[in-house]
Amino acid sequence: MERQPERDTTRRPATFGLTVVVATLMAGAVAWTSPAAAEWPDGSVRVIVPYAPGGTSDNTMRAVQPALEEILGTEVTIENISGGGGTIGIARAADQRADGNNFGFVPTATLTIAPHMNTVAYDPIDGFEPVGRMAESYGALAVRKDFPADTVEEFIAYARANPGEVTVGSAGIGTITHLYSEIFADVTDVDLTHVPFKGSGEAMNNLLGGHVDALFDPVVLRQAQADTVKPLAILNQERWEGLPEIPTMQEAGVEGFDVASWFGIVAPAGTPDAAVEGMAQALDEALQDPAVQERFADLGLMPVFLPTDDFAELIAADHENYGSILARVGLIAQ
Protein backbone atom coordinates (compact mmCIF):
# COMPACT_ATOMS: atom_id res chain seq x y z
CA MET A 1 0.00 0.00 0.00
CA GLU A 2 3.01 2.23 0.08
CA ARG A 3 5.44 2.83 -2.61
CA GLN A 4 8.59 1.99 -0.74
CA PRO A 5 8.01 -1.74 -0.73
CA GLU A 6 7.18 -1.62 -4.39
CA ARG A 7 10.60 -0.39 -5.22
CA ASP A 8 12.64 -1.66 -2.36
CA THR A 9 11.63 -3.74 0.57
CA THR A 10 14.70 -2.73 2.49
CA ARG A 11 13.58 0.83 3.03
CA ARG A 12 11.42 0.43 6.03
CA PRO A 13 10.27 3.14 8.34
CA ALA A 14 11.69 2.97 11.80
CA THR A 15 9.83 3.57 14.97
CA PHE A 16 9.57 7.09 16.22
CA GLY A 17 12.68 8.52 17.74
CA LEU A 18 11.33 9.09 21.22
CA THR A 19 12.96 5.94 22.50
CA VAL A 20 16.27 7.29 21.20
CA VAL A 21 15.91 10.46 23.19
CA VAL A 22 14.82 8.72 26.35
CA ALA A 23 17.46 6.02 26.09
CA THR A 24 20.20 8.53 25.34
CA LEU A 25 19.20 10.77 28.21
CA MET A 26 19.06 7.83 30.57
CA ALA A 27 22.38 6.44 29.40
CA GLY A 28 23.94 9.90 29.62
CA ALA A 29 22.60 10.58 33.09
CA VAL A 30 23.74 7.24 34.41
CA ALA A 31 27.19 7.51 32.86
CA TRP A 32 27.63 10.94 34.36
CA THR A 33 26.80 10.02 37.90
CA SER A 34 28.61 6.70 38.14
CA PRO A 35 32.28 6.13 38.85
CA ALA A 36 34.50 5.19 35.91
CA ALA A 37 35.12 1.62 37.03
CA ALA A 38 31.43 0.85 37.48
CA GLU A 39 30.19 -2.67 37.01
CA TRP A 40 28.50 -3.62 33.81
CA PRO A 41 25.63 -3.37 33.01
CA ASP A 42 25.19 0.13 34.22
CA GLY A 43 21.69 1.20 33.29
CA SER A 44 19.65 -0.07 30.41
CA VAL A 45 21.17 -1.61 27.31
CA ARG A 46 20.16 -0.60 23.82
CA VAL A 47 20.43 -2.66 20.65
CA ILE A 48 19.95 -1.08 17.22
CA VAL A 49 18.32 -3.43 14.72
CA PRO A 50 18.92 -2.13 11.19
CA TYR A 51 15.56 -3.31 9.84
CA ALA A 52 11.91 -2.57 10.58
CA PRO A 53 9.91 -4.56 13.10
CA GLY A 54 8.52 -7.84 11.81
CA GLY A 55 11.46 -8.84 9.66
CA THR A 56 13.73 -11.79 10.38
CA SER A 57 16.35 -9.58 12.05
CA ASP A 58 13.84 -7.94 14.34
CA ASN A 59 12.13 -11.21 15.19
CA THR A 60 15.50 -12.79 16.02
CA MET A 61 16.52 -10.00 18.37
CA ARG A 62 13.12 -9.96 20.01
CA ALA A 63 13.35 -13.71 20.54
CA VAL A 64 16.42 -13.33 22.79
CA GLN A 65 15.43 -10.01 24.35
CA PRO A 66 13.40 -11.38 27.31
CA ALA A 67 16.12 -13.90 28.23
CA LEU A 68 18.83 -11.23 27.97
CA GLU A 69 16.85 -8.91 30.24
CA GLU A 70 16.51 -11.61 32.83
CA ILE A 71 20.19 -12.54 32.75
CA LEU A 72 21.46 -8.96 32.77
CA GLY A 73 18.87 -7.77 35.26
CA THR A 74 18.28 -4.63 33.26
CA GLU A 75 16.12 -3.39 30.43
CA VAL A 76 17.18 -4.22 26.90
CA THR A 77 15.57 -1.82 24.42
CA ILE A 78 15.40 -2.54 20.72
CA GLU A 79 15.54 0.35 18.32
CA ASN A 80 14.70 -0.25 14.67
CA ILE A 81 16.56 2.02 12.26
CA SER A 82 16.01 0.92 8.69
CA GLY A 83 17.17 1.98 5.25
CA GLY A 84 20.05 1.44 2.87
CA GLY A 85 19.69 -2.36 3.03
CA GLY A 86 20.53 -2.27 6.72
CA THR A 87 23.59 -0.04 6.32
CA ILE A 88 21.98 3.10 7.77
CA GLY A 89 21.18 1.42 11.08
CA ILE A 90 24.62 -0.18 11.30
CA ALA A 91 26.24 3.20 10.64
CA ARG A 92 24.16 4.60 13.48
CA ALA A 93 25.27 1.75 15.73
CA ALA A 94 28.92 2.48 14.93
CA ASP A 95 28.38 6.13 15.89
CA GLN A 96 27.00 5.49 19.37
CA ARG A 97 28.94 6.22 22.52
CA ALA A 98 31.22 3.31 23.33
CA ASP A 99 30.09 3.29 26.96
CA GLY A 100 28.94 -0.31 27.10
CA ASN A 101 25.26 0.57 26.83
CA ASN A 102 25.05 0.55 23.06
CA PHE A 103 25.06 -2.43 20.74
CA GLY A 104 24.11 -3.23 17.19
CA PHE A 105 22.42 -6.27 15.71
CA VAL A 106 24.23 -7.39 12.55
CA PRO A 107 23.01 -9.67 9.80
CA THR A 108 25.75 -11.12 7.55
CA ALA A 109 25.42 -8.83 4.56
CA THR A 110 25.76 -5.54 6.42
CA LEU A 111 29.35 -6.25 7.48
CA THR A 112 30.59 -8.66 4.84
CA ILE A 113 28.89 -7.74 1.55
CA ALA A 114 27.47 -4.21 1.58
CA PRO A 115 30.81 -2.48 2.38
CA HIS A 116 32.29 -3.95 -0.83
CA MET A 117 29.45 -2.77 -3.00
CA ASN A 118 28.16 0.54 -1.66
CA THR A 119 29.13 3.70 0.09
CA VAL A 120 28.73 2.89 3.76
CA ALA A 121 29.45 5.20 6.66
CA TYR A 122 31.29 2.65 8.83
CA ASP A 123 34.32 0.41 8.81
CA PRO A 124 33.04 -3.19 8.98
CA ILE A 125 36.23 -4.50 10.60
CA ASP A 126 37.71 -1.70 12.73
CA GLY A 127 34.51 0.22 13.41
CA PHE A 128 33.15 -2.36 15.88
CA GLU A 129 33.99 -4.66 18.73
CA PRO A 130 32.41 -8.00 17.76
CA VAL A 131 30.45 -9.41 20.70
CA GLY A 132 29.18 -12.76 19.51
CA ARG A 133 27.24 -14.60 16.86
CA MET A 134 23.85 -15.79 18.05
CA ALA A 135 22.36 -17.75 15.19
CA GLU A 136 22.67 -19.13 11.74
CA SER A 137 19.68 -19.09 9.43
CA TYR A 138 18.55 -22.25 7.71
CA GLY A 139 18.08 -22.06 3.97
CA ALA A 140 17.65 -24.35 1.01
CA LEU A 141 18.08 -24.58 -2.71
CA ALA A 142 14.69 -25.24 -4.25
CA VAL A 143 13.50 -25.46 -7.83
CA ARG A 144 10.07 -25.00 -9.39
CA LYS A 145 7.87 -28.10 -9.28
CA ASP A 146 8.26 -28.96 -12.96
CA PHE A 147 12.01 -28.38 -13.18
CA PRO A 148 13.75 -31.42 -14.73
CA ALA A 149 15.97 -32.22 -11.74
CA ASP A 150 15.21 -33.96 -8.44
CA THR A 151 18.66 -33.85 -6.86
CA VAL A 152 21.55 -31.41 -6.71
CA GLU A 153 23.51 -33.74 -8.95
CA GLU A 154 20.82 -33.62 -11.61
CA PHE A 155 20.53 -29.87 -11.18
CA ILE A 156 24.26 -29.45 -11.82
CA ALA A 157 24.13 -31.81 -14.78
CA TYR A 158 21.21 -29.90 -16.28
CA ALA A 159 22.91 -26.55 -15.73
CA ARG A 160 26.10 -27.85 -17.37
CA ALA A 161 24.16 -29.13 -20.37
CA ASN A 162 22.31 -25.80 -20.69
CA PRO A 163 24.83 -23.13 -19.70
CA GLY A 164 23.23 -19.81 -18.73
CA GLU A 165 19.71 -21.07 -19.21
CA VAL A 166 18.93 -21.90 -15.61
CA THR A 167 17.59 -18.77 -13.93
CA VAL A 168 18.10 -18.20 -10.22
CA GLY A 169 16.13 -15.59 -8.33
CA SER A 170 17.41 -13.68 -5.30
CA ALA A 171 16.19 -11.12 -2.78
CA GLY A 172 18.38 -8.53 -4.51
CA ILE A 173 21.87 -7.73 -5.58
CA GLY A 174 24.43 -8.13 -2.81
CA THR A 175 22.09 -9.99 -0.46
CA ILE A 176 23.20 -13.23 1.10
CA THR A 177 20.66 -15.06 -1.07
CA HIS A 178 22.48 -13.69 -4.11
CA LEU A 179 25.85 -14.77 -2.72
CA TYR A 180 24.54 -18.32 -2.18
CA SER A 181 23.92 -18.72 -5.90
CA GLU A 182 27.17 -17.07 -6.96
CA ILE A 183 29.20 -19.27 -4.62
CA PHE A 184 27.29 -22.36 -5.71
CA ALA A 185 27.97 -21.54 -9.37
CA ASP A 186 31.60 -20.91 -8.51
CA VAL A 187 32.29 -24.17 -6.66
CA THR A 188 30.28 -26.38 -9.03
CA ASP A 189 31.51 -24.59 -12.13
CA VAL A 190 28.09 -24.00 -13.69
CA ASP A 191 26.75 -20.94 -15.47
CA LEU A 192 23.52 -19.72 -13.83
CA THR A 193 21.63 -16.57 -14.75
CA HIS A 194 20.96 -14.39 -11.73
CA VAL A 195 17.61 -12.56 -11.67
CA PRO A 196 17.40 -10.14 -8.73
CA PHE A 197 14.06 -9.23 -7.15
CA LYS A 198 13.24 -6.80 -4.39
CA GLY A 199 12.94 -9.00 -1.36
CA SER A 200 12.54 -12.73 -0.85
CA GLY A 201 8.75 -12.49 -1.16
CA GLU A 202 8.87 -11.31 -4.75
CA ALA A 203 11.51 -13.89 -5.61
CA MET A 204 9.40 -16.63 -4.04
CA ASN A 205 6.35 -15.51 -6.00
CA ASN A 206 8.32 -15.80 -9.22
CA LEU A 207 9.56 -19.27 -8.33
CA LEU A 208 6.00 -20.40 -7.54
CA GLY A 209 4.78 -18.90 -10.81
CA GLY A 210 7.57 -20.67 -12.71
CA HIS A 211 9.11 -17.40 -13.95
CA VAL A 212 12.49 -18.39 -12.52
CA ASP A 213 13.89 -21.91 -12.09
CA ALA A 214 15.58 -21.89 -8.72
CA LEU A 215 16.05 -19.98 -5.50
CA PHE A 216 18.60 -20.22 -2.67
CA ASP A 217 16.75 -18.69 0.26
CA PRO A 218 15.28 -19.36 3.71
CA VAL A 219 11.75 -18.62 2.38
CA VAL A 220 11.70 -21.81 0.32
CA LEU A 221 11.74 -24.00 3.44
CA ARG A 222 8.12 -23.45 4.38
CA GLN A 223 7.02 -23.66 0.75
CA ALA A 224 8.88 -26.96 0.44
CA GLN A 225 7.01 -28.25 3.49
CA ALA A 226 3.77 -27.32 1.74
CA ASP A 227 5.02 -29.16 -1.36
CA THR A 228 4.73 -26.15 -3.67
CA VAL A 229 8.42 -26.21 -4.67
CA LYS A 230 11.03 -28.96 -4.91
CA PRO A 231 13.81 -28.71 -2.31
CA LEU A 232 17.18 -30.09 -3.47
CA ALA A 233 19.57 -29.30 -0.65
CA ILE A 234 19.91 -27.56 2.68
CA LEU A 235 22.47 -24.75 2.54
CA ASN A 236 23.78 -25.29 6.09
CA GLN A 237 26.23 -27.80 7.49
CA GLU A 238 23.39 -29.64 9.21
CA ARG A 239 20.04 -30.89 7.97
CA TRP A 240 16.89 -29.00 8.89
CA GLU A 241 14.51 -30.89 11.13
CA GLY A 242 11.52 -29.54 9.22
CA LEU A 243 12.65 -31.46 6.12
CA PRO A 244 14.77 -34.27 7.56
CA GLU A 245 15.04 -36.19 4.27
CA ILE A 246 16.70 -33.33 2.38
CA PRO A 247 20.52 -33.60 2.33
CA THR A 248 22.92 -30.77 2.98
CA MET A 249 24.99 -29.42 0.12
CA GLN A 250 27.98 -31.30 1.42
CA GLU A 251 26.03 -34.57 1.65
CA ALA A 252 24.79 -33.95 -1.87
CA GLY A 253 28.38 -33.90 -3.04
CA VAL A 254 28.99 -30.17 -3.33
CA GLU A 255 32.41 -29.39 -1.87
CA GLY A 256 33.46 -25.93 -0.73
CA PHE A 257 29.97 -24.43 -0.42
CA ASP A 258 31.10 -22.57 2.65
CA VAL A 259 28.63 -19.74 3.12
CA ALA A 260 26.17 -19.05 5.89
CA SER A 261 23.67 -16.41 6.81
CA TRP A 262 24.28 -15.48 10.42
CA PHE A 263 23.12 -12.94 12.97
CA GLY A 264 25.26 -11.45 15.70
CA ILE A 265 25.83 -8.56 18.04
CA VAL A 266 28.53 -5.90 17.83
CA ALA A 267 29.44 -2.84 19.90
CA PRO A 268 30.95 0.47 18.76
CA ALA A 269 34.78 0.39 18.63
CA GLY A 270 36.27 1.30 21.99
CA THR A 271 33.52 -0.25 24.10
CA PRO A 272 35.03 -1.47 27.41
CA ASP A 273 36.00 -5.15 27.53
CA ALA A 274 33.78 -5.71 30.56
CA ALA A 275 30.71 -4.76 28.53
CA VAL A 276 31.72 -6.78 25.46
CA GLU A 277 32.50 -9.87 27.52
CA GLY A 278 29.48 -9.41 29.75
CA MET A 279 27.16 -9.18 26.77
CA ALA A 280 28.81 -12.18 25.08
CA GLN A 281 28.33 -14.27 28.22
CA ALA A 282 24.71 -13.21 28.57
CA LEU A 283 24.10 -14.04 24.93
CA ASP A 284 25.64 -17.49 25.32
CA GLU A 285 23.48 -18.13 28.35
CA ALA A 286 20.32 -16.81 26.67
CA LEU A 287 20.80 -19.17 23.74
CA GLN A 288 20.58 -22.12 26.11
CA ASP A 289 17.15 -21.03 27.30
CA PRO A 290 14.58 -23.54 25.97
CA ALA A 291 12.12 -20.72 25.23
CA VAL A 292 14.69 -18.99 23.02
CA GLN A 293 15.55 -22.25 21.30
CA GLU A 294 11.90 -22.95 20.60
CA ARG A 295 11.41 -19.44 19.20
CA PHE A 296 14.49 -19.82 17.01
CA ALA A 297 13.19 -23.12 15.66
CA ASP A 298 9.94 -21.37 14.65
CA LEU A 299 11.96 -18.72 12.86
CA GLY A 300 14.10 -21.27 11.00
CA LEU A 301 17.22 -20.37 12.99
CA MET A 302 19.94 -22.50 14.53
CA PRO A 303 21.22 -21.11 17.86
CA VAL A 304 24.96 -21.36 17.37
CA PHE A 305 26.88 -19.08 19.69
CA LEU A 306 30.32 -17.94 18.64
CA PRO A 307 32.40 -16.04 21.22
CA THR A 308 34.00 -12.66 20.63
CA ASP A 309 37.34 -13.67 19.08
CA ASP A 310 35.89 -16.39 16.87
CA PHE A 311 33.14 -14.04 15.75
CA ALA A 312 35.74 -11.43 14.83
CA GLU A 313 37.56 -14.04 12.76
CA LEU A 314 34.33 -15.10 11.08
CA ILE A 315 33.49 -11.50 10.12
CA ALA A 316 36.98 -10.90 8.75
CA ALA A 317 37.02 -14.19 6.84
CA ASP A 318 33.56 -13.73 5.32
CA HIS A 319 34.36 -10.13 4.46
CA GLU A 320 37.43 -11.18 2.54
CA ASN A 321 35.85 -14.26 0.98
CA TYR A 322 32.73 -12.45 -0.27
CA GLY A 323 34.85 -9.58 -1.53
CA SER A 324 36.83 -11.91 -3.75
CA ILE A 325 33.67 -13.67 -4.96
CA LEU A 326 32.06 -10.35 -5.85
CA ALA A 327 35.22 -9.34 -7.69
CA ARG A 328 35.33 -12.65 -9.56
CA VAL A 329 31.75 -12.29 -10.80
CA GLY A 330 32.45 -8.71 -11.83
CA LEU A 331 30.22 -6.91 -9.33
CA ILE A 332 33.06 -4.88 -7.85
CA ALA A 333 36.41 -3.76 -9.22
CA GLN A 334 39.19 -6.23 -8.49
Binding site: M1, E2, P5, A52, P53, T56, N59, M204, T228
Partner: peptide
Protein backbone atom coordinates in the same frame (compact mmCIF):
# COMPACT_ATOMS: atom_id res chain seq x y z
CA UNK B 1 -2.74 -18.51 0.32
CA UNK B 2 0.96 -18.57 -0.57
CA UNK B 3 2.79 -17.11 2.41
CA UNK B 4 4.05 -14.22 0.28
CA UNK B 5 3.75 -10.63 1.49
CA UNK B 6 2.56 -8.19 -1.19
CA UNK B 7 3.64 -5.00 0.52
CA UNK B 8 5.44 -3.64 3.52
CA UNK B 9 2.54 -3.92 5.98
CA UNK B 10 1.79 -7.50 5.00
CA UNK B 11 5.51 -8.24 5.30
CA UNK B 12 5.24 -7.11 8.91
CA UNK B 13 2.09 -9.18 9.35
CA UNK B 14 3.98 -12.19 8.03
CA UNK B 15 6.58 -11.57 10.71
CA UNK B 16 3.79 -11.54 13.29
CA UNK B 17 2.40 -14.84 11.96
CA UNK B 18 5.84 -16.45 12.16
CA UNK B 19 6.38 -15.10 15.63
CA UNK B 20 3.26 -16.95 16.74
CA UNK B 21 4.50 -20.13 15.10
CA UNK B 22 1.93 -19.84 12.31
CA UNK B 23 3.06 -20.34 8.73
CA UNK B 24 0.83 -18.59 6.19
CA UNK B 25 0.49 -20.57 2.99
CA UNK B 26 -1.41 -23.69 2.01
CA UNK B 27 -0.61 -25.33 5.35
Amino acid sequence: ALGIPGDIVTAMLLGAFYFHGLAPGPL
